[in-house]
């Protein structure tokens, strides 16, 4: 009987964590146990637990790297923000989209695009500058961004159309950070494999 494949995304997430001999044994155990339990929910829960524990361990042992990751993230965010402003991305998109879609839909597009373009490269920079514990540092950056956005959201108690745009920006900022970060980790993993 051929082996049942566990959820691909969860396995990929597990593979992003620093691959030492321990991690390999955990991945093997999860694979073996999954063949009997055959529950994707169980597998996901186990993977998230392993990732959470690995992140905690990395942060405890490499706290200097964690500070460096946050510094790289802040610097990259400032740089990306200046670049996006300098290139006039918002103005250009509004200029192109407004006549076709109208003003309000164009605002919605810009509100998604701008944070994605700012937070994505910062995630990429964090992943590429941290070969050791790259995934942990990306998750730390995303968590810090999430905390800042939650604080900003908490100050907007009244429901206005502006609020919707703000929340949309927040969601796309987090999506951009995760996308950029994991892209960087995947690239690091790919170049490591090629080097071997």
């Amino acid at each position: 009987m051929s082996a049942l494949k566990p959820p691909v995304l969860a396995t990929w997430l597990l593979g992003l964590m620093d691959s030492d001999a321990w991690q390999d044994a955990v991945a093997g155990d999860l694979f073996e146990d999954y063949q009997q339990r055959r529950s994707s929910t169980w597998y996901w829960r186990q993977v998230l637990m392993v990732v959470a524990i690995a992140v905690g361990k990395d942060l405890r042992h490499h706290w200097v790297l964690a500070f460096r990751a946050l510094a790289v993230a802040i610097l990259s965010l400032c740089l990306a923000h200046s670049l996006v402003s300098e290139l006039g991305v918002v103005r250009r998109v509004m200029h192109m989209a407004s006549p076709l879609l109208g003003w309000w839909p164009s605002v919605v597009i810009v509100a998604a695009l701008e944070p994605f373009l700012i937070c994505g490269p910062a995630g990429l920079a964090v992943a590429l500058t941290h070969r050791k514990c790259g995934a942990t540092m990306v998750l730390l950056y995303v968590a810090a961004l999430f905390a800042i956005l939650v604080c900003l959201c908490a100050n907007r108690a009244h429901w206005t159309p502006g609020c919707v745009v703000f929340w949309e920006s927040a969601v796309f900022a987090l999506a951009g950070a995760l996308f950029g970060g994991f892209l960087g980790c995947a690239w690091e993993g790919f170049s490591r494999t090629r080097a071997i």
């Binding site: 082996a3 001999a21 044994a25 991945a27 093997g28 073996e32």
Partner: peptide
Amino acid sequence: ALGEATPERGGRAKR
């Protein structure tokens, strides 16, 4: 100690 990698574990070794 690491054991041998087996196919039923997706090619990963037991510890």
